[in-house]
């Protein structure tokens, strides 16, 4: 009967749809499990503290200390954050509060365009244009340094930080501004002391997501930070990030060799770090929604 066929179709489609919803959870779990499965075996060849805190990354000699890589990632990230967060928030404030509408219409798409540029293209420009400039400017033996990486990553994190911070700032109720201005405060005082503090959680969440983006970035850093898997002493030295290590070395490892496991273990560390950052950012957004 036509009616029965409809009902069967409805039931089947509902099952398909529910299943599709659940696959998202399944994938996250699957990624985690695979990383564990292919990463944990490295601890047959080394211990956890030696892995995480060992200063020497010499995979061809069987020494798997990822401290230089972690520090490399941290240094590049920290540099990027120092540049991108103040700049990103400043641009967000400018767009949300100060820019005339015509400028706004033109500025927002430009920042969004930056977000769309593939990381390999930005890395390419960094390699060919920025690195020589850095080399000459700071009289370095090479322009491929953590600093170059920070600048490039800052560019990539900017759109994320700016757009989320801008949303948070625009979401601050008009009454806050009106009350402050009515007390005789200037627009800047209002922004500095009423609006930005009120948008704190959103701005923080934007910064967190920007940081997450930066830590996870691979190609651009691979191309501009040089190739030195050693503990850095200044920001003007070549470094190696965790992401770049995986990308650079995976192609040359033998399957299921200790090196192979070690690279997966690095991937596991990356996964956990970005998971934690996303969780934090999500909680921050949730808190800012709840307090409204």
């Amino acid at each position: 009967m036509a009616g029965d066929r409809r009902k069967i179709t409805d039931a089947v489609m509902e099952a398909v749809i529910r299943f599709s919803g659940i696959t998202t959870i399944v994938f996250v779990v699957l990624i985690f499990v695979l990383l564990l499965r292919n990463g944990l075996p490295v601890f047959r060849y080394t211990s956890v503290p030696k892995f995480l805190f060992g200063r020497d990354w010499l995979p061809l000699s069987g020494v798997f200390g990822i401290l230089p890589l972690i520090l490399g990632s941290l240094l590049v990230t920290a540099g990027a954050v120092v540049i991108a967060v103040p700049l990103g928030v400043a641009v967000a404030v400018y767009i949300a509060e100060v820019a005339p509408p015509r400028v706004k219409e033109f500025l927002k798409p430009i920042v969004e365009t930056l977000a769309a540029i593939p990381s390999v293209v930005i890395g390419f420009i960094g390699l060919l244009v920025l690195a020589p400039v850095v080399q000459r400017l700071f009289s370095l033996p090479t322009g491929l340094t953590a600093f170059t990486g920070s600048v490039v990553l800052a560019l990539m994190a900017l759109p994320t930080i700016t757009s989320i911070a801008e949303d948070a700032i625009t979401a601050v109720p008009r009454d806050y501004r009106a009350a402050s201005l009515a007390l005789g405060a200037t627009r800047w005082q209002t922004i500095r002391m009423a609006v930005v503090p009120a948008a704190r959680s959103g701005i923080f969440s934007g910064a967190m997501l920007g940081i997450g983006r930066v830590i996870g970035e691979t190609m651009a850093v691979l191309m501009v930070t040089g190739n030195a898997a050693v503990v850095p002493t200044t920001i003007f030295e070549p470094v190696r990030t965790m992401t770049a290590t995986i990308a650079a070395e995976m192609g040359e490892t033998v399957q299921y060799s200790p090196h192979y496991f070690a690279l997966f273990a690095i991937g596991l560390v990356l996964f956990v770090i970005t998971f934690a950052i996303n969780l934090l950012a999500d909680l921050a957004v949730r808190r800012s929604m709840a307090s409204r």
């Binding site: 998202t24 699957l30 990383l35 499965r37 292919n38 992401t243 995976m250 997966f264 996964f271 998971f275």
Partner: peptide, 28 residues
Amino acid sequence: RLIRLSIVNLAGVPSIVYGLFGFGIFVL
């Protein structure tokens, strides 16, 4: 909520980790 959290996390996984995952599962 778990599904939404998973989507946010999938969006945040570093692209190289996707590469690793793809290599481990699909290729191997």
